[in-house]
Write a protein that binds this DNA or RNA. Structure first.
Lengths: 106, 106
DNA sequence: ACTTTCTGTAAGCGATAACTTACGGTAAGT
DNA sequence: ACTTACCGTAAGTTATCGCTTACAGAAAGT
């Protein structure tokens, strides 16, 4: 749910591959695992992590389970980075000013 | 340098604490480590990871070394998430449409 | 009812990551 | 020249993570 879990989930390359496969739309587990170099249970475990992080939603459809990217989860992380971006720019500008005035540090 | 390294670096809670301490401006290593519950060498190791990921810049100043957030590095990650956000929204809208038409999956 | 399909979970193993202490090295002050 | 302050790196340990195989369960078809 929190952006902390989301960024931890997206830190894994394999999970980003899974996310990439869901960019076009929802897919069942088997279809996601097809062509991947890891076992299907491994994919299931990754899907669990992504779901717990609020990045995916699940909708059962018969025996299949459709996974889809949850926009809200992505937005959480996006806002964190936007905030960090703003602060970084402000600090950068301030440091440039201070250096022009001759101050080096605190 | 790449957003992959950046997201892996920011996945660690301790490294996010370090980033938070640099939001107001550049700081030397000792000042960053003060008040933290891990040793100073541990902080140094984290700073190395963040630097390698392109999230920090280093400017030697006497015996001290000033670390600062690199806006470019943050922006890399920001763009990745903006892209993912766009795709997620489009896929979400398409899935809602498809469901309205009665299609369940592929 | 039985089989098939699709999926989640448990147990166990190997690799990696984060931490510690100890050491080395550079810049400034006396 | 010597000391002090500040910092990075090496070596070693412990915990966590990602993977595999094996098993269990639910839904649909025959």
């Amino acid at each position: 749910m929190s952006y902390e879990d989301a960024i931890a989930a997206l830190a894994d390359p394999t999970r980003r591959v899974i996310i990439d496969r869901l960019r076009r739309g929802p897919l069942p587990v088997g279809h996601i695992a097809d062509g991947m170099q890891i076992s299907r249970p491994a994919v299931s475990q990754h899907l669990r992590v992504l779901s717990d992080a609020g990045l995916l939603t699940v909708t059962p459809s018969g025996t299949k389970r459709l996974y889809a990217i949850a926009p809200d989860g992505v937005d959480n992380l996006r806002r964190y980075l936007d905030n960090l971006w703003d602060d970084a720019l402000a600090a950068f500008a301030r440091a440039a000013e201070d250096q022009a005035k001759g101050k080096s540090d605190e």
